[in-house]
Design a protein around this nucleic acid. Structure first.
Lengths: 338, 338
DNA sequence: CTGAAAGCGCTTACAG
DNA sequence: CTGAAAGCGCTTACAG
């Protein structure tokens, strides 16, 4: 099956390939008649432009790369946490509306990905989540728009989209305190320096401080951000009968915690209260509905794509640093205590 | 920033670009010494091959396109149903291990996607789910490996990966019957001719027939495959106090049903039993744990990629038609009645 | 308003 | 064992 090229269109119309190319790209000054002629030939022949050839000369691919963390190095993507599929959904949608496609891959956000980006002539890169900071080494010497979502590696070379994580941690904790809780556990993934978890922990401390509640190191429990880890961390809670509320820095963690607690004698919210973070769809699905710190995951993805697009169109502009709002979403997993 | 090309590598080594290309591709008979020379120059220069140029001459992109249904035409992808992110995860992983990347897009699986596939020189296409059958029109005249996941449009032009949906419907229903249930509702998405839902309904009928239980049309309720629809369908159940068990053809539907039922007087499983289909992660997360018909979503994605890869390597082989097994996963959402 | 020609960065018969 | 050259399908100054 011979591929139909611009040459066949040129032959059929009796024009040159240059002219055909001009009308296809809406460039140059081509007469109405000629344009119509070309368009007719295109649809008659079923001509489809070859992006590989276009990319080669334009040095652009209309492809945006999205880097999603892996569950384990070299393993499957972290889709177990619905946060990633939710944000991917809005990234894909926003990109599609603007004529771009999404390439996903579970590579690390490191030098190797930089190679990939060059190989593929990516027009932009969106990196979601935190990677250890020397992963970013070399990434700034690339002149491809690069946006970091939820990362506090802040070297002004990249666009950043995040939320006010510290404030989120603060309002979550305050919400529990205002409902009479004093012994509040903090459950999260690893507390790396530049992680959102660390910020949320600071917010937790802020709230305790404001209400003169001493922070207890033993109530800070860390694992990974997934369901299983939530189950395991909940084990540790079982030996802390005085803890009346738990702040989990991710909904998926909170779901695991609730599941495990429920299988013990500690029903949520009757015996213990739980608040999450993210407001994923599952927070709404589960029973009891999960009270959580809501962020607009859809907007986050949209903002990431827009940052890429803006950079493409106005490379001279300063780096974007966008911080999206958070707010408490009340459901049934927290109760007021005396 | 000038891009480093094969030419620079040739200059530095004093070889021709042909020779450099040969060693890069491991073709031809090139001496050890020359090979080493080239590799040194490559790493010294930081040379990265340009896939656009490669694709242009090879007519292959190392890119596999994955088509995921949209929630609404022209809207975001159906990631609200975790089935899609779970299968995407295994598709990406399997592709990555084999040197391919994944391009996702929410286009319809129609002539337009065919154009896209040609534009992008896709090496394979994986279409997940059911589209109306004339969407596939023209898709067979493309000579790109194409695999259909969970579709009963069966014209032998495509590879197909599915499970035994009818049997799945049968064992789900039988499971309920064996536990004493007689008035069993069937909840699903639209019952299109070639949909998995229709097959699962047939299995439901099979089981009823086997046990001489009359099928009642009023107990067949259809909506869409999402959480909200599950909530809405559950409304209708409220006026059917005699129904003691519900078979939902998707876990996400079942989750919606349980949530709604729970907010009424009908607690699961005490007052009514629910069985799902898919065995998604959420089936394990929720309370009560969801008893469901388990399929291996990971294997499904893996099989889809392997079908593409096999086709690439052995285009002469017959179309693959793979059917994966299903089995009951017991949790807590079904109880035995007298 | 339109065309001839160079060039994007690679691969691959074909010669030698 | 290595190289000169054509060609993949497109875009874009530059002429006219």
């Amino acid at each position: 099956m011979k591929r139909i090229t611009i040459k066949e269109v040129a032959n059929l119309t009796g024009l040159s390939i240059a002219t055909v190319s001009y009308v296809l790209n809406g460039k140059g000054n081509i007469s109405e008649d000629t344009q119509k002629l070309v368009h007719e030939a295109v649809s008659q022949l079923g001509y489809v432009p070859n992006y590989s050839a276009r990319s080669l000369v334009n040095r652009k691919s209309n492809l945006i790369g999205v880097v999603i963390p892996q569950a384990q190095p070299g393993s499957t993507l972290m889709f177990e946490n619905p946060f990633y599929s939710e944000i991917l959904s809005s990234i894909e949608y926003t990109a599609r509306k603007n004529g771009y496609h999404i390439m996903i891959s579970g590579t690390n956000a490191d030098e190797k990905y930089l190679q990939l980006a060059q190989q593929r002539n990516l027009n932009g890169i969106i990196i979601i989540g935190m990677y250890n900071s020397d992963s970013y080494a070399g990434l700034e010497k690339i002149n491809i728009p690069l946006v970091l979502v939820d990362s506090y590696v802040d070297n002004h070379h990249f666009h950043t989209i995040k939320i006010n994580d510290r404030y989120g941690g603060y309002i979550a904790t305050r919400y529990l305190i205002e409902r009479g809780h004093r012994k509040i556990a903090f459950l999260s993934g690893a507390l790396h320096e530049s992680s959102v978890n660390m910020q949320r922990l600071e917010g937790y401390y802020d709230a305790l401080r404001e209400y003169d509640i001493p922070a207890e190191a033993k109530r800070i429990l860390t694992g990974q951000i997934n369901f299983e880890s939530g189950m395991r961390l909940a084990e540790q809670l079982i030996d802390m009968p005085d803890v009346s509320a738990v702040f989990c820095t991710a909904d998926i963690l909170a779901i695991g915690v609730i599941k495990r607690l429920n299988s013990q004698e500690r029903i949520v919210p009757e015996r213990i209260s739980v608040i999450g973070f993210d407001n994923l769809n599952i927070a709404h699905y589960c029973i009891p509905g999960l009270t959580t710190v809501g962020q607009d995951v859809y907007k986050k993805g949209e903002a990431a794509v827009n940052a890429v697009l803006n950079h493409i169109n106005h490379p001279e502009n300063a780096k974007e640093e966008i911080s999206l709002p958070v707010s408490i979403i009340e459901r049934e997993s927290v109760r007021t205590v005396a």
